[in-house]
């Protein structure tokens, strides 16, 4: 395992989820270095979504701890964890389709921003993802790709310390994926990003650090090049994904 150089912003200890008798995650010990882009990868059914669900509090853990910025948040409900500085974008697009784009972002920003600075904050987040000219559109009328960008703007508007993106490129066109990678790279250094991703090209281009999950357990973790060379990873995952 490659050593983690910076202080971890997020840590899990023995995090386990059992559905009935089936283990979705088993004793996951995980450390997320601060200020970098980490990709969480693994084949289908590896337990990535369950893991992230337990981190954000959407899925109650069977046992184990989640530690965020040195604080044990295992007992906190999801909204309180978000309140501590996590932001989360759903695997399946989740926006406020009946409200306009500006209000979508404003809802994300309003919890931390007072009225006087709200407009500027929303404008900046929309400009960052390239949706500034669509601010008055009804969110449900946006194209699929734009809706995914809107979700990222909603995440940015929260000024997150940790930004969790659950399969953000799923369903995007090639050109949109390239734009997305550029956007993610642009955010590096401002915040910590945890990227759950299927698309290996995106992972290799965007991530500083990779954690591989297989059968509910951490299989490997390290720099992209090291992971690419790892035989166990190749056997479990890359061989099939590259095809």
């Amino acid at each position: 395992m490659a050593s983690v150089t910076s202080r971890p912003i997020l840590e899990t200890r023995g995090l386990t989820k059992l559905y009935g008798g089936l283990a979705a995650n088993t004793d996951v010990d995980f450390q997320l270095p601060a200020g970098r882009i980490t990709a969480l990868i693994g084949p289908n059914g590896a337990g990535k979504s369950t893991f992230v669900g337990m981190v954000t509090g959407r899925i109650p853990a069977t046992r184990g701890q989640v530690i965020f910025e040195g604080r044990d948040i295992s007992a906190l409900p999801a909204h309180a964890r978000i309140g501590l500085g996590m932001a989360y974008t759903f695997q399946i697009t989740s926006i406020f389709p009946g409200l306009d784009v500006r209000e979508n972002v404003a809802l994300a920003a309003r919890r931390k921003t007072d009225g006087a600075h709200l407009g500027a904050k929303v404008g900046a987040a929309l400009a960052r993802v390239g949706l500034a000219d669509r601010a008055d559109a009804v969110a449900g009328d946006l194209s699929y790709g734009h809706q995914r960008l809107l979700e990222i703007a909603m995440g940015l508007a929260q000024d997150p310390k940790l930004f969790i993106l659950d399969e953000p490129t799923q369903g995007l066109a090639e050109s949109e994926v390239a734009g997305f990678v550029a956007l993610i790279r642009d955010l590096a250094g401002e915040t910590t990003i945890l990227l759950i991703e299927h698309n290996m090209d995106v992972v290799m281009q965007a991530a500083d650090h990779i954690v591989v999950l297989d059968q509910g357990m951490v299989l490997a973790s390290g720099e992209p090049q090291a992971i690419r060379a790892d035989r166990a990873v190749q056997a479990a995952y890359l061989g099939t994904a590259d095809a």
């Binding site: 409900p77 809802l107 909603m154």
Partner: peptide
């Protein structure tokens, strides 16, 4: 409009 999204924006 979307309770789950609202919750995951940090609102109780």
């Amino acid at each position: 409009e979307n309770e789950e999204r609202t919750r995951m924006l940090g609102y109780d």
